[in-house]
Simulated scan of single mutants.
Amino acid sequence: WQFFFIFNTHLSTCCLCILVLRIFRHGDRTPVENFPTALHKESDWPQGFGQLTKIGMQQQYELGRYVRKRYSNFLSATYNRQEIFIQSTDYDRTIMSAQAHLAGLFPPKGSQIWNPQILWQPIPVHILPESQDQILHFPTSDCPRFDELQNETQASRAFQNRLQPYMGFLKTMAAHTGYNVETLKALHKFKTWNIYDTLLCESIHNYTLPEWASQEVMGKMEKLAALSLQSLFGIYKTKEKSQLQGGLLVNAILKDIKQAIKPSNKRKIRIYSAHDTTIGALQMALNIFNGKLPPYRACQFFELYQENNGHYSVEMFYRNDTLADPYPLRLPGCTSSCPLEKFAALVSPVIVKDWSKELATSLPHEGIGDAHSEVPG
């Protein structure tokens, strides 16, 4: 094992860091789809819809440099394939984000420089097809029970109570966007979220916005987009939803952690390049979600430590403000530095032994898979 020492103020003792595990959202991208009255076409964007932009590349490069600085005493000074593993969803924007991130994290040095004019080196990014990806792409496809839960959520009193204050606003938005109210209020169809996302992308890149897209309107739409994400993985039967979605990633993280404590382990850092829905599903499964949409390059950290007494602990951090260090998160029922055994016990309710068996508990019917709308991500 190779460790670095960190002074842990809430423990008042020195700990050895064994593993750093991170899940981040890709960088800035173009819209994923248009709405009927949109002013701009897909051809107005140089690479089309859903693609990483130069801003997004720079954001991920900066995040990579930040991680290099944060863990400078832990990671080797140069890239070592045995120390790092990075996996991405099968989307251009997440694959490219991973590549830009690695450029900032491991710029070539010394003998690793293969071209003095290009201070970059290729580092493998591992990818699974979307149909096989059950830990990063949420909501996972082909899950009839989750589709049922989405329909139940939309009809639940808990959801309707949150949606009701926006009904007048949605009627106005229907007149502006070309969608009917029924489509917009069905937040699991993602049309409302996608309208906000499209306008946000256009504003970031100085495209002309519709006259009705005022700051007040954008603020309300952002809250509705956040409500869409919450309704997707929370609000109603959150535990069961988490077992079918975010709990799959929780289980993968727990396996990564348990693998890291083996004496034969050489891995120091695992990185997952994914989406806002990935972070949302994970944080809601852990009951640490702050109710806000994860911004571009938002990053969830897990750090595994070995205490002086030989026991292990897990700490969590979340970076959604690029001007500050990530802030600590506490798993409900535990301390900020959570003993590994307790961490595993607390997350166990959202981990199922046989996901495919859970999947087979219901027959498919109309649900999120029939929305014909890409989750913003």
Rank of each mutant, 00 (worst) to 15 (best):
Leu170Ile: 12
Lys185Asp: 06
Cys17Ser: 11
Asn287Cys: 13
Ser111His: 15
Ala298Val: 01
Thr278Leu: 04
Glu83Asp: 01
Gln51Arg: 01
Phe24Pro: 02
Gln154His: 15
Val217Ser: 08
Ala103Glu: 00
Ile95Lys: 15
Val314Gly: 04
Ser362Arg: 13
Trp120Phe: 07
Pro263Arg: 06
Ile257Tyr: 10
Thr89Val: 02
Ser348Pro: 07
Gly64Asn: 05
Thr238His: 02
Tyr272Ser: 01
Ser231Cys: 11
Gly247Trp: 11
Gly280Asn: 07
Ile127Ser: 02
Ala345His: 11
Arg270Ile: 13
Pro326Trp: 04
Ser141Ala: 12
Asp133Cys: 03
Tyr66Thr: 09
Tyr196Phe: 11
Asp321Val: 09
Thr192Trp: 04
Gln51His: 00
Gln245Pro: 12
Asp90Leu: 02
Lys357Ala: 12
Pro107Ser: 14
Asp92Leu: 07
Phe35Asp: 08
Val352Ser: 14
Val350Ala: 09
Asp44Gln: 02
Ile351Trp: 09
Pro328His: 00
Ser76Ile: 04
Thr94Val: 09
Gly178His: 15
Pro165Gly: 00
Pro36His: 05
Asp256Lys: 07
Gly234Phe: 08
Leu200Asn: 07
Gln58Thr: 11
Pro122Ile: 00
Val314His: 04
Arg68Leu: 03
Thr89Glu: 03
Trp212Asp: 00
Glu366His: 12
Asp276Leu: 06
Lys262Thr: 10
Asn309Pro: 10
Phe7Ala: 12
Pro328Arg: 00
Leu229Thr: 10
Cys334Leu: 07
Asn151Arg: 15
Thr13Pro: 10
Gln306Gly: 08
Val347Arg: 11
His275Tyr: 05
Leu52Gly: 01
Gln51Gly: 05
His176Met: 14
Ala344Asn: 03
Gly310Arg: 01
Arg319Lys: 15
Ser264Leu: 10
Thr9Lys: 09
Tyr91Trp: 07
His275Gly: 00
Glu374Gln: 09
Ser156Trp: 02
Thr278Trp: 09
Ile261Thr: 09
Ser12Cys: 09
Thr78Arg: 13
Gln134Gly: 06
Val375Lys: 03
Phe7Leu: 10
His372Ile: 06
Lys258His: 15
Leu187Gly: 02
Lys268Ala: 04
Leu249Asp: 13
Leu119Gly: 02
Ser264Pro: 08
Gln230Gly: 12
Lys258Gln: 15
Tyr79Gly: 04
Leu329Lys: 01
Ser141Trp: 10
Ala158Asn: 14
Lys109Ser: 04
Phe159Asn: 02
Ala175Trp: 06
Gly280Ser: 14
Ala155Lys: 14
Ile253Asp: 06
Trp45Glu: 12
Phe7His: 13
Ile55Ser: 08
Lys54Arg: 14
Tyr305Arg: 13
Leu39Pro: 05
Cys334Ile: 05
Ile55Thr: 09
Asn73Tyr: 07
Asp28Arg: 11
Met284Ala: 05
Gln164Trp: 06
Cys334Gln: 04
Ala260Thr: 01
Ser12His: 05
Asn8Glu: 05
Ser72Tyr: 06
Pro116Asn: 00
Ala77Gly: 08
Leu363Tyr: 07
Ile288Asn: 03
